[in-house]
Every structure is written in C-alpha cells, then in structure tokens.
Simulated assay, not measured.
Amino acid sequence: MGDKGFPALRLTLCFLFFIVTLHLVHGDLSYSFPEEMKTQSVIGNIAKDLGLDLRTLSARKARADSEGTRKRYCDINLSTGDLITSERIDRESLCGKKPSCVLKVDLVLENPLELHRVSLHIQDVNDNSPKFKKDLIEMEISESADKGNRFSLEQARDADIGQNAVQRYNLEKNEYFILAADNKAELVLENTLDREKQKELNLLLTALDGGSPQRSGTVVIHVTVLDANDNAPVFSQAVYKASLPENSAPDTIVINVNATDADEGVNGDVTYDFGHVSDDYINVYSIDPKAGQIRTTGVIDFEEMNSFEIIVEAKDGLGLTSYAKVMIDITDVNDNAPVIYLKSLTNPIPENVSPGTEVGIINVQDRDSEITDRSAALFSKMFLLNWFPLLKTIILW
C-alpha cells in the first residue's frame, strides 16, 4: 500500500472506533455517599454490582477515570472489587450551593473493552458553621424611634445547603430589642430608647444551622443612641433581576440599584455596598458606592456558575441600613469545543488482529449547555449516516 492509502486507513479506523462505541458503552452505575469521607473509604462494590468475580476484574485491568478534572477522586481495589475514595471530596468546592452534586467517573474494563459511566452523588454533611461578614455590626438609632420599628441586619452565610444551612437566629435577652422572627435577622424595638439613660448598648446575635451536631456563628451589634435620624434608606425594589451573557467584557454594566432616604443632609446621604458574599463574587463584580451601579470586574463563565445571588446594602450617613437582593442569570454562549476522550487497550495491537476485534472507545463531551451538546450529537449521527455506505464497503473488503 502506498502513502496515499494511509489517510484512508486512519479514517476507516476512526469510524470503526466510533461504531464500536455504540456497542461497548454499558449502563450507568450510581452511588450515593457523604462528603469528607476518609481516603480509602468504600463507596460501593464494583465487582458485585457488575456481576464479575475478582479474578475477572483483575484480569480485565479495571480502572476508574475521572473525566474533565485533574484530580483522581476514586480508585478500584482489585483485591476486593471495592470502589474507594483516593482523596478528600469536599462538596462545597465541587458544587457550591447547587442542590445536587454529582461527580462523573468512567469505569473501564479491557479484553474485551467496556465502558461504564458511574455517577457519584455527593451528600452534604454539616461541616461549615454560619458566618457573618464582620465580627461587629455598628448601628446608630435615634432615641425618637417608635416602639415596633424594625431594623434589618445582614444575614449570616453558611456554605452548606438544606437543613445544614442557617435555619434560625437567636438574640441575647435585653431590655430594648427582640427579633422579628427566629428565622429572620431583623431587630424590633420593643421599648423606647433613652439616650440620657443609656447612649450605647451591645447585643449578641447568634445564627444557628439545622445540622447534627448543630453549628453556630455570632456577631456583636453595637447600638449608638442618637438624637435624630428617623428614616432608613428604602430600595425601589426588594429584588432586582438581570441577565448577562458569559464572557462579558470587564466593566460591563449589569444593573443599577437605587435607594432613597427621606431624611436630609448626612442622614439622607445613601451609600451602597455588597453584603456578605464570597471572594469569588467580589472578584467578579463591583458596585459604585455612590451611584449603586453594579459592573463586571472579572471573567464570567457559564460552565463554572450560571447564576449569582448578591445582597446589596444601602446605608445612610448615620448607619441605618436596608438590604435588597440582586439575582443575575448568566446566559450560555458556544465557547467550548467538543472534547474527545479515547479509551484504548494498554497492550499494542498485533498486525494480524482479526476483523471485529475491539480496540478502543470514543467518548465525546461538550461543556456547553444541553442545546449545544444535542446539536453536536445530531451532527455526529448525520455525519456517520452519510459515511456508512463507504464504511460498509471498506469493512466487507
């Protein structure tokens, strides 16, 4: 065969690999286990669940590959058939606040070549405590404030989800304030303040989660009693919503928030800031303290995070504060090419190998959204159908 025959041979082998994939990718396995298990902890028994004895598992060189990540989170103990953890698995670093956290692993067997997709459902454990943005909250409240007036506080943040996240608040018993509700960080003035009697007071606020064992975080509220400042800033909306395409250039305007204060002078001078947000948010967005304009400052990647929820605070000159929520939905753009993963035999292929011998599996993945992924899959099927008559001729030859 001359040099001109080699490209045709390579093309034929590629399509043969693709056809083999249709027959050798088997059903999924699924396991559920808690995060933060010790290394070498057993997730499940691969041999039992696939109906293989241990000698077969070892002879077929079973291995576990984690696609799309540099870390190897699990491995197979060929002596027992157990799928075991190979390093610490932290749900929060993998999935953040997503309600479902699934890690995909490929189980590969050789002789003949098989591929099983394994879904690892990582359950949340209560390994994070509620935290406030600061250790001290400074407030200034007029002695003319009426009984029943409410004062919003910044809520605590907990990296855990569901029942393990913040469930309620507790305010240390005092003469002047109570909580509006045990699940809301909002003070209610129960008794009138008297600056001449007490011009300063400290309140201890505790945030508690619902985990077992229960975790908590505290903040001290320092209240300075003033002679006047009767109104807190009021946002034009309780919730602001915006949509932003991924890969937006830095300094792109996302949305404007606006709060007004009925007081005059320094009492009505409103400034804006973010509430308690993670460092990832701070590196992506900024807010103009005077204008309330939110802009992008970093790279926005739909595949990393497809939505943001930011608490914005408006504070007047003497410290009365109100809060609003900004919800930003990130729209996907087709910025990822499909990636082809090839699973092949570890031993060289002899030149006299019989036709029909399994030599490899092609696994195609695309990190973009489902619509783009389906389009790529449809194109692959159409491309295969267009070439199938030629392949059939080559295979028969």
Rank of each mutant, 00 (worst) to 15 (best):
N202T: 05
Q198V: 11
G217S: 03
P213H: 00
E246F: 06
T218E: 15
V220Q: 14
K197M: 07
S248M: 08
Q237A: 09
P233W: 01
T192I: 13
T224H: 08
S212V: 02
E246K: 05
P233M: 01
A242N: 02
Q198I: 08
V225W: 01
E200I: 13
V239M: 05
V223I: 15
R195M: 15
H222Y: 01
L193I: 14
A259R: 09
V239W: 05
A249E: 13
V220E: 13
L201D: 12
T252C: 09
A207W: 02
N247Q: 13
V225C: 07
P245Q: 07
D251E: 11
D261P: 04
L208G: 07
D269N: 09
A207F: 07
A242V: 04
T224L: 05
P233V: 01
Q198K: 15
G268C: 11
P213C: 03
E264S: 12
D269F: 11
N229I: 03
E246N: 06
S212M: 03
L204T: 12
T206G: 04
G217N: 01
D269E: 10
T260Y: 11
A228Q: 02
V223D: 00
E264T: 13
S248L: 07
P233R: 01
T252D: 11
K197R: 15
D194H: 14
L203F: 10
V257C: 03
N256W: 04
G265A: 08
V223L: 13
P250Y: 08
P245T: 07
A232Q: 14
G268P: 03
D251L: 10
S216L: 07
G265H: 11
E200L: 09
N256Y: 05
E246R: 06
V239S: 01
L204W: 00
L193A: 12
N247H: 08
Q198M: 15
K241G: 00
P233S: 04
D261H: 01
K197Q: 13
V220G: 08
I253A: 10
Y240S: 02
E200W: 04
K199M: 14
H222M: 03
L244T: 01
D230F: 02
V225K: 01
L203P: 11
A228S: 10
R215H: 02
L193Y: 08
V270M: 02
K241A: 06
V266Q: 09
P245G: 09
A232P: 05
L226M: 14
Q214C: 05
G268V: 06
A207H: 07
V239D: 02
N256H: 10
K199Y: 15
L203W: 05
L193G: 11
L201N: 12
D230G: 14
P245H: 07
L193Q: 10
T206M: 04
V234A: 09
I255L: 04
Q237G: 00
L244N: 00
P213T: 03
A228K: 02
E264F: 10
V223K: 06
L208T: 08
A232R: 04
E246H: 06
E264D: 12
T252K: 11
D230S: 13
